Computed example of a mutant assay.
Amino acid sequence: MKKTVTVIILIAIVLFFGVAMYWLWAKNAEDPIVYETEMPSKQTIVKKTVATGSIVPKEEVLIKPNISGIIDEIFVEAGDVIQRGDLIAKVKVVPNVSSLTSAKNSINSASTQVETARLAFESQKSIYNRQKDLFEKGVISANEFDQAQLSYDQAQQRYNQEKVNLSGARQNYDIVKTGTTSGLGASANTEIRATVSGMVLDVPVKTGNQVIEANNFNDGTTIATLADVDKMIFEGKVDESEVGKITENLPLEITVGAIENKNFDAILDYIAPKGVSENGAIQFEIKGTLNKKDTTFIRAGLSANASIILAKADSVTAIKEALVQYDPKTLKPYVEVATGDQVFERRDVELGISDGIHVQVISGLSETDKIKIWNQLKAPPQFGGR
């Protein structure tokens, strides 16, 4: 029994020794790791974040009527460039029965007042002429004559005022009935004119549509939308995780999807003080004024992306960010620099801005240093020993 156990132990030792020798042989048979190196280079590094949005006019003006009615004629269409005061449309007034009746009653009342004032004036005129004759003959005193003259002047003034009121009542009747009257000319309510110069972006109404005047109770019907297309802005939103990195007056690079191979410069001039929840994330509105240096026409409403340049370094010494290692204790960055054939030493470095691919090296390296690619990928094994 003891002899059998001894034999088994000896066989196990031999097998273990054989496996160990095979492992050592296989380990020595592997090719040694040869680390490649890279040298620093000159790079222009731009650190930026991207906001999505669209191109819109800086100011849009909505043209609304001053009187309710039906569109009789439209003189412009979207895309037309017009000047302030140009005629946009005409409105045909549909009289309101109640307002029309009230206007007629005002005319009748004013006519009665005119006739009453005329009779009073004629009476005072007769009294005045009679008193004048008596005064010239010395029958009445100057005080009595002055009183008669005052009454005559007051009656004449009232008569003239009542005639003005009658004229106003008739004009008001014409306005209620037709929307215009004699003497208004270009200021007639039925003529809708441009209040600013610019391009017509939209004409949402058609001939025959009913429109409502703008007043204290409603905004009124929009006849046309005008804007100066030479003054465009980028309007977009950034996530709450990015808003803390940006400030006003930062440069923007605008890319419009519909205009290929062309970027536009802009300046960030507005960041919303309050965020809005959208799809579970807080978004902040931003605006940037475009600085157009050419005649490229940008249509309002085009989708665009804005690259907000947070920092930029031109022609600086840089290395790939993948070459940088960090001390596990101090978390300070360092690289390994070749001092001989496959011999490397640690070199602490001071880093600047990064774009995610390259990082600026402020100090610690020269342009001739060879940096170890410590995380290089091994080539996949080939079949057949090749």
Rank of each mutant, 00 (worst) to 15 (best):
M39K: 14
T4C: 08
G18V: 13
V19W: 09
V7K: 13
S54Q: 14
W23L: 12
E38F: 01
W23Y: 10
Y22V: 15
V34D: 06
D31V: 11
V61W: 02
T6E: 13
V19I: 15
I8G: 05
V61P: 01
M39W: 01
K47C: 08
E60V: 09
P32K: 15
E38I: 01
F17Q: 11
I45T: 10
S41T: 13
A51V: 05
I8V: 15
A12N: 04
I11W: 01
V46F: 00
D31N: 11
A12Y: 02
I9E: 06
K27C: 03
W23M: 13
K3T: 14
P40G: 04
V50Y: 00
P40M: 02
F16P: 00
A12H: 04
A26R: 11
T52I: 10
E60P: 00
K3H: 11
F16C: 11
Q43S: 07
V7I: 15
A29D: 12
S41H: 00
V14A: 15
F16G: 08
E59W: 00
E30T: 10
E38Q: 08
Q43T: 03
K3A: 13
I55N: 03
P57R: 05
S54Y: 04
T37Q: 06
T6L: 14
I33L: 12
L24C: 07
V5H: 07
K2G: 15
I11H: 01
S54L: 00
L24Q: 15
L15V: 15
V34L: 11
I8E: 09
P32F: 08
K2F: 08
A29Y: 03
V7H: 07
V56G: 02
K58F: 04
F16H: 04
K42W: 00
E59G: 01
A26C: 01
P57G: 06
Y35R: 01
T4I: 14
G53W: 03
G18R: 08
I45C: 06
A20Y: 11
S54P: 03
A12T: 05
G18E: 08
K48G: 06
M39A: 11
T44C: 09
N28P: 00
V56K: 09
M21H: 09
Q43M: 10
L15I: 15
E30M: 10
I11T: 13
V46W: 02
T4H: 10
E36N: 11
I8R: 07
W25C: 05
A51W: 03
K58I: 07
P40T: 03
M21Y: 11
V14P: 02
V34R: 10
I55M: 04
I13G: 08
M39C: 03
T52Q: 13
T4S: 12
W23N: 14
T4N: 10
L24Y: 07
K58G: 10
V50N: 06
N28Y: 06
A26F: 08
M21T: 13
K58Y: 03
Q43P: 01
T49K: 09
V14C: 12
I13V: 15
T49N: 08
I11K: 01
T4F: 09
I9R: 06
A12C: 12
I8H: 01
V7Q: 11
I55K: 03
I11G: 07
P57E: 05
L24K: 13
K58C: 00
V7G: 08
I55P: 02
A20I: 06
E36Q: 13
I45P: 05
K3F: 09
F17L: 15
K42A: 11
